[in-house]
Every structure is written in C-alpha cells, then in structure tokens.
C-alpha cells in the first residue's frame, strides 16, 4: 500500500519545482503510477510511506508533443497509447504502434507514460528500446536560482542499469527528442509468458530503410532489451547491414551477431534462441514494411518468420 500525506498535482513546471524544493527529501515524483502503485505491495516494497507525491502528468510541457518529418519531441508524460492512436506519431515512429500493442493492455497504456517507462529503467522496458532505435535523447530539467536549467543526454547513456538512471535529485525528465523515420519499415518483437499484461522476456525494435528497388539496405536501426541489465543498441549489426543487399544469407548472419550479447541473470539459453529468431523476424517484417522486393528474400524465410 502506498501511503502519503499529500498528493500534489502541479499545473506548471514552475509549480512542480516549487513543490520539489518545498518538500526536498520527502517526495517522490509520479506520472501514470503504473509502476509505483504495484511496487508498493506485499512481496515487493510492501507498505511504503512517502510524505508527498508529486504528479507530473498534468504539466502542459510534459504532455506536449511536436512531430515533423525530421524530429519528434515527446513530453515525458505522454501516455504509451499515443504511439498507437496518433497517426502522425505512428508514421514518425514506425515500430511504435507495434511496441505499444504489446505493452500491458489498452487500459494501462492510457495511463503508463513514456517517461515513467524510461525512468523506471527496467531491463525489460518496452518503450526504451523502441526510442533508442531512433537515437533518442532525453531532456532533463532542474530549478537553479529560480530559473529552469536543462541538460540533454542520449537515452542509451541515461539508462544505466536495473532501476538506475542518470537522473539527479531535484531533476525531472521533461521530454524525449528523437529522429522521425517515416521512410523506414518498423517492427517490434516481444515474448513473455502470455499475450497481454506481460513483461518482456526479450523484446526487439527493428527499423529498416531500403533503396527504391527494395533490394538494398540503406539503413537499419536495432535495439534489444531483456537480455542484460539495460537495453542495448545493436550498432555493429547495423553497420554490417548498412549498404548491403537485402538477402537471406546476410540476414541470417546478422541474426547470429547479437546472440553472444545475452547476459541476463536467467534463462540464457532460451534467450539466445529467441534473439536469433527475433532478429530474423524483426528484420524480415521491417524490410517487408519498407517495401522489400518480394524476390529478395527466400520464401522459406518469409513463411518461417512472418
């Protein structure tokens, strides 16, 4: 049970920082609360008394978003469901809708925020790898001498390990900025114990851009989670695929490359099999959605990994 004496819902960033200053050392930030409330239960943190909860989900800047053909800026408190139901966002983040549809369920996605997923820093977070594949940067803000001071860093550096981030005391995650990749085909592969309401055992975001004939890989973006302490960007595989012809042999070789990266605490052998399969399925699906020439990939590969 989460017990608090005060629940504050600031309506501006300034109010939020004022509350954070006033209650320094006795508050906790929440957004959708979908990680925080289940955490404060028996078997996990148990009954937790936190004097003040500061809910950032109504701060206009944190729910604003800007999308054009080059860049996306998402307020940190954007609910995950927006990946599915805002067409311009779905276009700019081609793996986003597929990531969202595997995330919890329709109801929780309305509450769960992108920023919460990032700051919670679960090794199996779904949204984080999806954004890492877009070269995402986080924007962090703090109050300094009455003014708002901001800094930025790459999402890959921000998430440091299970439950650990570079967020400092007094800081808020305000926004995520990343590449818009409307010309890419996207896929998101996820496996857990059931279909809905399930934390990933492994998940993979794959983005592929092909040449006009759909035969050569112009660019590939890959990020994987669940196989180690934090989500990883698969840059080596991307380099291996970039500029190469789209063919079955090459994809099979690429699929082997991250298998050695599996460093999870449990079920390593299973995860290695999954990684190989997901790489193929992710790349095939993304390539197909990027307009692959149907002759480029063997029919066998397509049916096995469709």
């Amino acid at each position: 049970m989460l017990i608090c004496d005060e629940y504050i819902t600031p309506s501006s960033l300034a109010d939020a920082f004022a509350a954070m200053t006033r209650h320094r050392g006795r508050y906790r930030v929440v957004a959708g609360c979908t990680d925080t409330l289940p955490w404060a239960r028996e078997g996990r943190a148990g009954d937790v008394e936190i004097p003040v909860l500061i809910d950032v989900s109504r701060i206009p800047e944190l729910i604003a978003r800007r999308v054009d053909d080059k860049r996306v800026r998402l307020g940190a408190a954007t609910p995950v469901q927006r990946f599915l139901d805002v067409p311009e966002l779905a276009r700019a983040l081609p793996a986003g809708p597929r990531c969202a549809v595997w995330f919890a369920d329709d109801q929780i996605r309305e509450q769960a925020t992108v920023g919460g997923n990032i700051v919670n820093a679960s090794p199996a977070a779904d949204v984080t790898p999806c954004l890492i594949a877009h070269d995402a940067e986080v924007e962090l803000a703090r109050s300094e001498n009455g003014a708002v001071a901001r800094r930025r860093m790459s999402l890959t550096d921000f998430v440091q390990g299970p439950g650990r981030t570079a967020l400092q005391e007094g800081e808020l995650l305000t926004a995520i900025e990343c590449d818009a990749l409307p010309a890419y085909g996207g896929s998101f592969e996820k496996v857990g114990h059931r279909r809905s309401l399930v934390i990933s055992v492994v998940c993979l975001a794959a983005l592929v851009k092909l040449d006009a004939q759909g035969r050569r890989v112009e660019d590939a973006r890959l990020s994987i989670a669940g196989i180690g302490p934090k989500p990883l960007r698969l840059s080596e595989v991307e380099n291996f695929l970039r500029g190469a012809p789209l063919d079955t042999g090459r994809l099979e070789q690429a699929a082997e490359m991250p298998v050695a990266l599996v460093a999870s605490r449990t079920r390593q052998e299973y995860r290695r099999d999954v990684v190989r399969g997901f790489m193929l399925r992710g790349l095939v699906n993304a390539a197909k959605r990027a307009g692959a020439d149907p002759a480029a990939l063997s029919a066998e590969l397509e049916t096995a990994y469709a």
């Binding site: 629940y7 959708g32 109801q107 309305e110």
Partner: peptide
C-alpha cells in the same frame, strides 16, 4: 496491481484500471 481488469472504469470516456489510479487523478 493492474493485472486483472475487474476494476475497469471510464475516465473521461477512456477505460482505465481504477486500482492503478490515485483518487487525486
């Protein structure tokens, strides 16, 4: 803990799980 859906309600027309929502929201 948001896992079962027996508590689903519409909030401003959107279905949500009321066990995951502080009343202040």
């Amino acid at each position: 803990a948001g896992e079962c859906g027996t508590c689903s309600v519409f909030v401003d027309g959107v279905l949500m799980k009321s066990c995951l929502m502080p009343v202040a929201k």
